[in-house]
Design a protein around this nucleic acid. Sequence first.
DNA 1: TTTTTCAGCACAAACGTTTGCGCTAAATTT
DNA 2: AAATTTAGCGCAAACGTTTGTGCTGAAAAA
Lengths: 345, 345
Amino acid sequence: MGGKQTTIKEIASLLNISVSTVSRALHKHPSIGITTQLRVQKLAEELNYEPNQAAIFFQKGKSYTIGLILPELSEAFFSSVVNAVEDMAYKKNYTVLLAQSHDNEDREKQIIQMMKNHRVDGLVVSVAKTTTNFDHFHMLEKYNIPIVFFDRIPPLKNIHSVACNIETGSFEAVNYLLKKGHRCIGLINGPAALTASEERKKGYFNAITKNRLKFDPSLIVSCDLTEKGTQEALTALMENKRNLTAIVTFNDYVALYAIKYARKLNIDLKNDLQFISYSNLPLINYMDHVPIASVEQFPYKQGEKAVEILFDLINNKDSSTPETMYYNKVVVESELVENQSYHTD
Amino acid sequence: MGGKQTTIKEIASLLNISVSTVSRALHKHPSIGITTQLRVQKLAEELNYEPNQAAIFFQKGKSYTIGLILPELSEAFFSSVVNAVEDMAYKKNYTVLLAQSHDNEDREKQIIQMMKNHRVDGLVVSVAKTTTNFDHFHMLEKYNIPIVFFDRIPPLKNIHSVACNIETGSFEAVNYLLKKGHRCIGLINGPAALTASEERKKGYFNAITKNRLKFDPSLIVSCDLTEKGTQEALTALMENKRNLTAIVTFNDYVALYAIKYARKLNIDLKNDLQFISYSNLPLINYMDHVPIASVEQFPYKQGEKAVEILFDLINNKDSSTPETMYYNKVVVESELVENQSYHTD
DNA sequence: TTTTTCAGCACAAACGTTTGCGCTAAATTT
DNA sequence: AAATTTAGCGCAAACGTTTGTGCTGAAAAA
């Protein structure tokens, strides 16, 4: 019982049969008689036999491992994705090799190398903010390691990706506020360069025009997502529009900064100014004043979808000639959810 | 170029030398002439040779992988540990196999099985809250897989562990408040059953008595760590002690609840009541009102230490007869840190 | 009865790497 | 010149498993 693991070999010699028979018996291969199959399984059970995965990985040229590369685990969005990937992998008896790029391009490249050497069967990746060169991803194609990108998707063609459509959620958010009677709604947006900002703007615009209201561009201000920038943006909005009653913010951090600052300015957050944000932080529920609603981006669902696609790719590796290859581009719709904790305040 | 990885074999046949020579040359083995060594290395470089880790793992009976099992990734404390473990592993060219038990004993057991099958070289573990049976950990001993526990340590003898001494931090916290002139300091503690509660209480008691003040037991109240429980605890404290000027809370969640409730009661948090908490949440920095200080538990340092010990164990596996075996029990001292964001409020 | 079929199992190669051992020829010592 | 050492390399086994192919004897078909 002590020390070494029992091998297929030992079982074979104990039973006076060949290794191959044991192997097949354990896999319930039809060409093995039922009696020997049972004898083998019984002994294997008794000896506490566990297949040596390292040997199997080596033999099959597969590792039954998928790599997960993301920028920062501490961001709730990503840790939620980890949960999803882990759960999915778990079901199929895969394991997850995790690594954080910390938004560093060099580290990302090293991680890719490591993943390749470890012969991961596939990768789920959210690229680092700073990454501008994508050769390391191309390199993996040569080794037939499929990749599914999510959330932060590189500007490459012929890739598989899962992302969230922020536009629909933005539309719903503004629409929700309009239905509640708000007529002057601000948007503290992110840097104009980000497509994420663009999507938010589009949703905002669509909601306004669909409701037959006229769009006022001065209600949208950009900020650099810092606390100071947020304060300036809020100030600008407030000064321009005295009748402002609601604000949609780029993300939860911006919402936090804005709410904090609004409180400092002695604004009545119950009656005079309401917020809607995009959900990043679970902790927003512990805040003194929470936004009345959030645009949910379903990180868990995105993670699930990404792994689902990856498994498809892994299992159809052979049939994937460049011609017959199709590329998955899944879009998860964002959705407005009311913050219940707002009402318990 | 296309598809397959180059192997040591191919290099050998291209150079008309044997595989063993190539292997040794790549490892700079002294018994290989310098000229052949260079020839091999040059060709390996050109062919973009990368050793097949799966084969090496198999051959060496090692996976160069360490397993990390923790309850919940979403808790900032643990995600910080992940960072540490990853960084340490990274330096030694190890990879990290991550899994969450979600505080579920069954899942924990399955994960252990999986880790064993994957032949991890060692494990860093924080056990699930609900785990009462520890056989699955004992089982690993038979397979010579070393474990280092951290934070949540099972009540077993002869194990390696890293944990944080909360008592020192608690002492410092109360001492800090005393130096600031506070004379009536409350402690909203956790359930009495937890050793964590006991440690906090001890630190509190020591600080009081070391300062030659008399200890008032009614200043310590237990709570169940829920929002409601916290509110009740705070109410009890406030009613009993009208001159209460500071409170130490069991953790950041309790602090958040208490601060939120205190605000509701229109207590002046700047002048009348100050808080100190134990740091779990980075987000506390975004709050309207933060505690003036936190007891830091250094999760990153704990993670580092745990991996350090693990590597020691992995490398000295052979020499570890039960007799010569020594067990590591590292205690990381907690420490009071002032919240700078408190002053920028 | 003879031929065919097929169930049930064994043989052996293969996956890529490491490593103990043995071999050869040259260099060094007597 | 003969004996000894040694530098430099090749041979082959081993790690545990899977899998294509070949073999044997018995059951089915002729």
